[in-house]
Design a protein around this nucleic acid. Structure first.
Length: 669
DNA sequence: AAAAAAT
């Protein structure tokens, strides 16, 4: 609105933006008021306060006007921000010094937004993944705080302690949809703030609330970074001593996520705990790689009417990087998924051994449920105890295996994230906790098993690779029965079909004799590893997948058939697990005869939560055995009974290996 | 039955 008033004068801006409800009584009078341009901010504020409904309409005007407007001169070097007196010298030193962050040139988002954000206007910034959005909002936010002459900076005192800053002087609140992303933003903020006297604190769930509060009370806080639940908890707790009466900046990272169904209510509750924006002027900044149309109403409701929508992704452009070739692989069945992941790892490792220019294999494998992540991670961990191809000790060589999802303890999650961040050659099995914003350096592959729930999720997941100008590749592993879902959700994205992976297209119930030795070996290894995984976990995973697959498959019956094949040929279960009749009914699956129902009504066997069966709190990363499973490895490699006692060779030669006898009529354990 | 997020 403010922009519109500045450019076109009061009357024209009003004519363009006045909603019907307003025009009847007020608009004619307002239109008569030819305010001088200098009055524009006052007018805009008055209109905003008096007619909240004006928000939506006026913001739209600003947005369209932005496309017409001339862009001012852009600064592209960090050093120039200092020489032009725009940004504090310590901040710029932290960014540019070779021993610190060692950056010289700004990215496109950075040079387009920093100046605007310094001016205090609300900004919604959309830019591709991995292009430095965090720094883009941290720099102007810190500068704006430092520009206040009344600011009490922290004074260094002793080794880790400092004093001077208060716990009720939060100037900027940064909200993130996941705990790990909040931690990552805080870590970057601390680097940028070094030597400025600004104090950065975090507030996330899964940590001790009291010790976090004590840190804030002891050292003070100017920028608080956190997740919605804990931030709300702290700000609404009068005994915490933490408050933000002078809050000037509210930042929503991954804004579209925070404004959608699951989060928007909590964000509103947080806003209600903050000072009235008409008494304490507040800048709102929102950032994301994706801004679906549906969230624009929420964006406009949260921002001032004159907000700027700055996009470095053109409207007609697909918001993924061309540097990241993206392939869709249609699997013979979901039982082919893990063999395919292993094949991708092995073939890349083999290429990398020949080509010094290739980086080590560092992959994130995404699944749609926590159970699938856990199952895959357990299987791959077990793989490390299986004799490898040729001379190597395991099929994975020296590759480390990590997993991360919400049902691990926070300590285990943090460990996984840190270990994977530092790892050279590793594979991270992950839920969508890491899909947004996480910056793991040098990720070479993003592999998605099953279709992402929506287009945005796909874009953010693929954005974990190809960051900061680096290369990367993406794979999406799907079932034929999901073709329509795929076309519908991801049809316009630059995916090309790939059928070069031999373990992807094998029929695991039939074709093993005709398979290449390498493919057969890979499948054998996964099968053997899968035997190490508890059947309880497999059954829970099956039940988890019912919900997602019955939605992504065009025909529900095909989803069940695919899932049953996965249970038998992939998980090695003797038969598909039974499901509660009530659940089958809820999913609209009760007429599908291939879905096995539990008997005995409400007295049927209760589903057991694998996370409650003794493994809670002990991930691979925080186990005392240095990431190796300590369980029955020794026992399992010798003295097996029945099928599993046979040598790998004899099994490979046996006919009908993938019939129902493959894993034995009765699974071990 | 399906990510995430306060205890």
């Amino acid at each position: 609105m403010l922009g519109a008033v500045r450019r076109f004068g009061v009357s024209q801006a009003l004519r363009a933006s006045a909603p019907r409800s307003l025009s009847a009584r007020w608009a004619p009078q307002l239109l008569k008021w030819q305010a001088p341009t200098s009055q524009a901010p006052v007018l805009a504020k008055f209109l905003h306060t008096s007619f909240p409904a004006l928000n939506a309409a006026s913001a739209q005007v600003t947005e369209t006007l932005e496309n017409v407007s001339q862009e001012p001169e852009f600064i592209t070097e960090f050093a120039d921000l200092k020489t032009k007196g725009l940004i504090d010298a310590s901040i710029i030193r932290n960014i540019t010094h070779p021993g610190r962050m060692a950056l010289t040139t700004m990215t496109e988002v950075q040079s387009q937004t920093i100046n605007q954000m310094l001016g205090g206007v609300d900004v919604l910034a959309q830019a591709k993944t991995g292009t430095g959005k965090t720094l883009a909002f941290l720099i102007p936010t810190m500068q704006n705080i430092l520009s206040d002459p009344t600011l009490k900076r922290a004074q260094p005192q002793g080794r880790h302690r400092s004093t001077g800053a208060g716990s009720s002087d939060i100037r900027a609140l940064i909200i993130s949809p996941t705990r790990e992303l909040a931690e990552q933003i805080a870590a970057e903020a601390i680097k940028v703030a070094q030597g400025t006297g600004l104090v950065v604190q975090t507030a996330v769930g899964g940590t001790h609330k009291r010790s976090g509060l004590m840190r804030i009370q002891r050292d003070g806080c100017h920028l608080l970074v956190g997740t919605p639940g804990r931030i709300k908890d702290i700000l609404s707790d009068p005994s915490s001593g933490v408050s933000a009466p002078k809050l000037n900046t509210l930042i929503l990272d991954e804004a579209d996520r925070l404004l959608d169904q699951g989060f928007s209510q909590e964000i509103n509750e947080i806003k209600n705990l903050l000072p009235d924006p008409f008494k304490v002027d507040r800048q709102t900044l929102m950032l994301s790689a994706t801004v679906p149309k549906e969230v624009m109403t929420m964006v406009k409701r949260t921002m001032k009417p004159d907000f700027k929508f700055i996009r470095t992704v053109r409207d007609d452009e697909v918001p993924t990087h061309v540097r990241v070739p993206q392939k869709t692989v249609f699997l013979q069945g979901y039982e082919n998924a893990l063999p395919t992941v292993l094949e991708l790892a092995k073939t890349y490792q083999a290429r990398q051994a020949e080509d010094q220019n290739l980086r080590p294999f560092k992959a994130i494998v995404y699944f749609n449920s926590t159970n699938e992540v856990n199952l895959a991670a357990e299987a791959f961990m077990a793989l490390r105890g299986i004799p490898g191809d040729g001379r190597s000790r395991s099929p994975l060589g020296r590759m480390r295996v990590h997993q991360i999802h919400s049902r691990l303890t926070q300590a285990a999650r943090t460990n996984s994230a840190n270990n994977f961040r530092r790892a050279e050659e590793a594979i991270l099995f992950s839920s969508d906790v890491t899909a947004r914003g996480m910056d793991f350096p040098e990720v070479t592959h993003v592999i998605q098993v099953g279709p992402p729930r929506d287009r945005e999720t796909y874009i953010h997941r693929i954005g974990r690779t190809g960051r900061a100008g680096k290369e990367g590749e993406g794979y999406l592993l799907l079932h034929d029965g999901e073709y329509e879902f795929y076309q519908d959700k991801l049809g316009d994205l630059p995916l090309t079909e790939d059928n070069t992976l031999s373990t992807a297209s094998l029929n695991m119930a039939r074709d093993l004799e005709t398979a290449s030795p390498a493919a057969a070996e890979t499948i054998e290894q996964i099968k053997e590893a899968m035997n190490e995984v508890s059947p309880i976990m497999k059954e829970s995973t099956y039940r988890s997948q019912l919900g997602t697959m019955s939605q992504s498959f065009t025909k529900k019956r095909n989803a069940i058939l695919a899932l049953n094949n996965l249970a038998i040929h992939g998980y090695g279960l003797a038969e598909p697990p039974a499901v509660k009749a009530s659940i089958a009914r809820n999913l609209g699956l009760d007429r599908i005869k291939e879905l096995k129902l539990e008997e005995g009504g409400s007295f049927g066997r209760r589903a057991i939560d694998p996370f409650d069966s003794g493994r809670r709190g002990r991930s691979f990363d925080d186990s005392p055995f240095g990431g190796r499973r300590s369980s029955n490895r020794g026992r399992s490699s010798h003295g097996r009974s029945g099928h599993f006692g046979e040598s790998r060779e004899s099994r490979r030669d046996s006919p009908n290996r993938y019939g129902d006898a493959v894993f034995g009529a009765r699974p071990r354990y």
